[in-house]
């Protein structure tokens, strides 16, 4: 896994719980903790860190990954503002993951194993996404989608239609966005 993901996790944890929390997770996960965005590190380091966080916060793996995804988005928007300014709304941003975001990621980090999303619209106009990755981090993907909606000031409904953790060959999400809902919530 690319070092930049570890950097994002460190940033999210430190911002939410302070620098000491990150030290504790490194110790508990028994990893080196020295990550540079240019490098690549074993997936097992990430799993160990996620497990340590789950232990500390009393959350399961998926909950930690989802939280990480939600909280990584504001950090990403700081590092790569162009990714976000290029898309006018959350749906456009998500729809451009394969062609825009991951293309740019591969330029910056040669050899990055980005997941691929097959996308289409269903009859009610929701975006249907297939998540195809050996890492089984569908919860991280969900967190990213939800974090993005927040960043754009929209509300999102994320339905995990099928999941590999329940024996499906791949995960499928059905996603719908609404900018008005959040406005109403805010107004209320």
């Amino acid at each position: 896994m690319k070092g930049v993901v570890f950097n994002l996790l460190e940033g999210a944890v430190s911002r939410a719980f302070g620098d000491d929390m990150w030290d504790r997770l490194i110790d508990a996960a028994e990893v080196s903790g020295a990550y540079t965005s240019l490098g690549s590190y074993p997936d097992s380091d990430m799993e160990a860190l996620v497990a340590a966080a789950g232990q500390d916060l009393e959350l399961d793996r998926d909950q930690v990954l989802r939280w990480f995804g939600q909280n990584a988005i504001p950090l990403m928007a700081d590092i790569y503002p162009d990714f976000f300014s290029a898309a006018p709304d959350a749906r456009t941003f998500v729809e451009g993951i394969n062609s825009q975001i991951h293309t740019e990621v591969r330029k910056l980090y040669p050899g990055a194993a980005c997941p691929h999303f097959n996308m289409r619209s269903n009859s009610s106009g929701d975006l249907v996404m297939d998540y195809i990755s050996t890492r089984r981090m569908c919860a991280l993907a969900q967190g990213f989608v939800e974090g993005t909606a927040v960043w754009y000031g929209e509300s999102v409904t994320f339905e995990h239609v099928t999941c590999t953790s329940h024996g499906a060959p791949h995960c499928t999400f059905a996603i719908s966005w609404s900018s008005e809902t959040l406005d109403k919530v805010k107004a209320a």
Partner: peptide, 24 residues
């Protein structure tokens, strides 16, 4: 002690980044 460890991690990460950049 925590700060020293943090510094050591940062130094290691920097050297790693430099090696990667040089190879690139």
């Amino acid at each position: 002690e925590r700060l020293e460890r943090r510094l050591a991690r940062e130094r290691e990460a920097r050297q790693m980044a430099e090696r990667i950049a040089e190879q690139g």
